[in-house]
Design a binder for these strands. Structure first.
Lengths: 145, 145
DNA sequence: TGTAATTCCTATCGAGTCAATAGAGATTTA
DNA sequence: TAAATCTCTATTGACTCGATAGGAATTACA
């Protein structure tokens, strides 16, 4: 399961992607629209800024903006930033690989083989879906309503 | 990531599937072969018995056996027993569905659509892989060594 | 130049989960 | 009757999670 933090982050970034102008959007406004507790959202957005996914403007009339195009921010990026690797075990993680401490032989581990398939399947979905695809679907639905 | 408990369970059930006779195998032996702390394994196996995946024989010369054919015990079954749903959110879980508390409208939620795809991709791998497929691969590898 | 508005940063909290251990009870076999 | 084994529940310490708090730093604007 995703953490609450990850769900909040997804909601917030979609709001920022929809806003999508040159002016920053303030935390308080994002919190309102996304339904996230304000102070908690501060921490979340801060972390995304440190990862280069968002950028910020400080001081009065400050706020947050996407640091890249919506199509270049995938669901996988967002989930990794809040919850860590997508893989089900460290030994099959691409972004945070390390050996399982108690592993006898990685090459013959049957569990690893299956978890590798699972990782590839999950990652291929989450890498292919981005803020752009989510916003586009939302706009299309709004037009047809 | 899977919990340590889930990894232990996978190892232990593979050991039981390899043993695969009519006589039960004792917890202490499974613990040794699978590399799992004995008392912790007790709890794990107990839970699998309650779920009908294992059965047990009490008293002297007792132990544990698979309650079904290895091909009918999937990786998904094992992971669900220890870690809960495979889905990334309650609203896309098949085995433990419930609405996200803060969800406005489930039909239009863009996050849900993506998590649904992810769940299907992951589950299709984990449902298709069983103790039988794991043991078969292991035996084939042993023959070719 | 000062003040209000905003992000930045760190600390803290309570509740819960995780991994592991402990030990007494129930059951079966020899 | 004794030994071996599974059964069950409690407990522990470390850590994580979700959330809140409050002051520091920065910027816009009157």
């Amino acid at each position: 399961m995703l953490s609450q933090k990850a769900r909040y982050a997804l909601h917030a970034l979609i709001v920022l992607a929809e806003h999508d102008g040159d002016e920053p959007m303030q935390i308080a406004d994002v919190a309102d629209e996304a339904g996230v507790p304000r102070k908690f959202l501060e921490q979340i957005l801060l972390e995304f800024r440190k990862r280069g996914i968002l950028r910020s403007q400080r001081g009065r009339a400050g706020g947050y903006l996407l640091a890249k195009a919506p199509k270049d921010i995938s669901f996988a990026d967002i989930i990794r930033a809040t919850d860590g690797p997508i893989a089900l075990a460290p030994c099959v993680s691409v972004t945070a690989y390390h050996r399982c401490e108690d592993c006898m032989d990685e090459r013959t581990c049957e569990i690893r083989k299956v978890l590798m398939l699972a990782r590839d399947a999950t990652a291929s979905v989450l890498e292919s879906q981005s803020l752009a695809t989510a916003v586009a679907r939302r706009k299309r639905a709004a037009r047809n309503a």
